[in-house]
């Protein structure tokens, strides 16, 4: 993710705004301040408050909610969520990169057709795509039926495989939902890569591994980094997929946050979890940007 999407335009004809220019922009600015900046501020304020007798919030300055996050129970949930998200991200990149690369290296006709095939799942409701796996993984589901009829499962194990509501189901669901989010940005940067560079590296005697490490990877890194961002952060907080495929057995940070606001009604604790999650997001975002810049510099240095 180099620069923000739609980096702002350098219009040579742009001029200083008069009073009108500011007045017309005011609704948008007010909207952003009211519905993006202010809510974050309130969230931070809540996180330092404490829970009143009636489940209301008493403002104040206490670190209690943050101290509670340090409880091993919650630390473990945080660690588990990050672990699942990291595993999902790694699998998505490993599975998605070769496919994105292949699609980007086709001629225009095939490229557009294959790309459309990736766009369709990308735009299909993630809820529907998660639900599809319930039909496949449940004990009387498609996968067990196929395994049974093919005889892959010896008859001694008459019991069907318990796949649904396991950690494996959650990871399958996450990878399935987020895979297009990696393929598309990697495709975008692979498509820009000039094939001549690879030819040149080959001609200069670089082996395939070296070409991959020193030419392909640095040049497609912006796409890989963007894809990682698009998967890692949402995957940490994605409680709907864990709920549907993990049941109550696999609880993630998103589920805990949601519980504080819908069932436990402990807003300050939920807010503190939300703030920590946001910080996590900002740090990983900065880290990926920094990694990208370093890769850029080493590439330029060569």
């Amino acid at each position: 993710m180099h620069g923000l999407p739609g980096a702002f335009s350098a219009n040579p004809h742009a001029r200083r705004p008069g009073a009108w220019g500011w007045w017309l922009l005011a609704p948008m600015l007010a909207w952003l301040l009211l519905f993006v900046v202010a809510p974050m501020g309130i969230l931070v304020a809540y996180s330092f408050g404490s829970r009143g007798m009636l489940g209301d919030v008493e403002f104040g300055f206490s670190w209690d909610s943050y101290a509670r996050i340090a409880d091993p129970i919650y630390l473990r949930i945080f660690a588990r969520s990050i672990g699942y998200a990291a595993l999902t991200t790694a699998l998505c990149v490993l599975i998605g990169f070769p496919a994105a690369w292949f699609i980007a290296r086709r001629g225009p006709g095939w490229r557009e057709r294959l790309l459309l095939l990736v766009m369709i799942p990308f735009w299909t409701s993630f809820l529907i795509r998660t639900y599809a796996w319930i039909a496949i993984l449940r004990s009387e589901g498609l996968l067990n039926a196929v395994l049974k009829s093919s005889g892959a499962v010896p008859h001694v194990f008459a019991e069907p495989l318990e796949l649904l509501y396991t950690p494996a189901a959650v990871v399958i669901g996450l990878v399935y939902v987020y895979l297009p989010f990696v393929i598309l940005p990697v495709y975008a940067s692979a498509e820009k890569l000039d094939g001549v560079l690879i030819e040149a590296a080959h001609d200069l005697g670089a082996g395939p591994l070296r070409v991959f490490r020193e030419v392909i990877l640095p040049l497609t890194w912006p796409g890989v980094a963007a894809g990682m961002m698009l998967v890692f952060v949402p995957a940490i907080g994605m409680f709907a997929i864990t709920d549907l495929l993990g049941g109550a057995r696999v609880s993630m940070i998103g589920n805990v946050i949601q519980n504080q606001f819908t069932k436990a009604l402990n807003f300050p604790f939920g807010a503190a979890l939300g703030v920590v999650f946001t910080l996590l997001f900002v740090v990983s975002f900065a880290l990926l940007q920094w990694l990208g810049r370093r890769k850029d510099e080493t590439a330029k240095a060569r």
Partner: peptide, 20 residues
């Protein structure tokens, strides 16, 4: 600032609007 709502995790946006 315009890009923040696009990159912000949905759950954070949801709870921050809820507290607002």
């Amino acid at each position: 600032l315009v890009c923040v709502p696009m990159v912000m995790p949905e759950i954070v946006m949801g709870i921050s609007l809820l507290v607002l």
